[in-house]
């Protein structure tokens, strides 16, 4: 007996109060995402070009940019929802495939099946080869994680927008993705619900450790949630050239960050300037 297996989670002493630790609902192998000169054109119109960067396993990267600058296009390429891009895109060490099963997408709209209960909607995200009992246990845990256990039997139209978005997040987590892709998931929510959802996402990330790519147009949300922020934009000289990486910044501090911090305020005005907005 030498050392413990490298993958094993560090276990505290047996006497420690176990229930206080967040239960790892999903223990995925977080995967890296490598963009190598990724571009995308729709019918001759270049939307994205020359995107090169690496997202480390377990990292949260926010993709920030003005409307229509190709944020979602980049995210859809990672999820294999759109395979028309140029360049090279690796998840882990394998190229992305059509509807890549190593990723899971949380869409801007919850996209729940209206005829299925919340529980059955979350089941939709389970991997196909998972045993029934294991699947049920995982859905139970996810329902608990997103706080919907007592609404599991309801249909999507019977719950609020915020709850629907939580169900959508749980569905994405059900397949234990190596990379979680979120496309402005909180964009349609009211300000208060949005803050709660951001906290939930931080909890989820803390307990799963999955890599997260988060598309957003909200500077504060990006600064609150991300380790790094990828700012996409077009060159001011010629917007028709297509968007590319304008800057890639590391957000100072660790989560949860103080929303009133000076450093964040400075970074914020820098990002707003990058988005072409006067920060006053």
């Amino acid at each position: 007996m030498t050392s413990a297996p490298a993958l094993e989670q560090p276990v505290s002493t047996a006497e420690s109060a176990e229930p206080e630790l967040p239960t790892p609902v999903v223990a995925p192998e977080s995967l890296s995402v490598k963009f190598n000169d990724v571009g995308r054109a729709f019918g001759g119109r270049t939307v994205l070009r020359n995107v090169t960067m690496t997202v480390n396993p377990g990292e949260v990267v926010a993709i920030l940019g003005a409307s229509g600058c190709g944020k979602s296009t980049l995210l859809r390429a990672v999820g294999g929802l759109d395979v028309g891009f140029t360049g090279e895109l690796l998840i882990g060490d394998r190229a992305v495939s059509r509807y890549d099963e190593r990723t899971a997408v949380g869409f801007q709209e919850p996209r729940l099946l209206p005829w299925r209960s919340i529980r059955r909607n979350i089941e939709l995200g389970l991997p196909r080869d998972l045993e029934k009992s294991a699947g049920k246990a995982r859905v139970d845990e996810l329902l608990d994680l997103v706080g919907l256990s007592d609404r599991a039997h309801l249909r999507p139209r019977e719950i609020s927008g915020g709850m629907a978005q939580r169900a959508s997040l749980a569905r994405a987590l059900a397949r234990q993705p190596g990379v979680l892709l979120l496309d402005e998931p909180f964009g349609a929510l009211d300000a208060l619900t949005r803050l709660k959802m951001q906290d939930l996402l931080m909890d989820v990330h803390a307990s799963t450790g999955t890599t997260v790519l988060l598309v957003t147009h909200d500077v504060n949300e990006a600064m609150q949630l991300a380790d790094r922020i990828l700012l996409l934009g077009c060159p001011d000289s010629d917007p028709a050239e297509g968007a590319t990486v304008k800057s890639l910044v590391t957000v100072p501090g660790t989560r949860p960050r103080n929303r009133a911090s000076q450093d964040l305020a400075r970074l914020g005005s820098q990002l707003y300037a990058g988005l072409g907005v006067d920060s006053h």
Partner: peptide, 8 residues
């Protein structure tokens, strides 16, 4: 699309 994204 959501169905396809989840492997259906």
């Amino acid at each position: 699309e959501a169905g396809r994204a989840f492997g259906y």
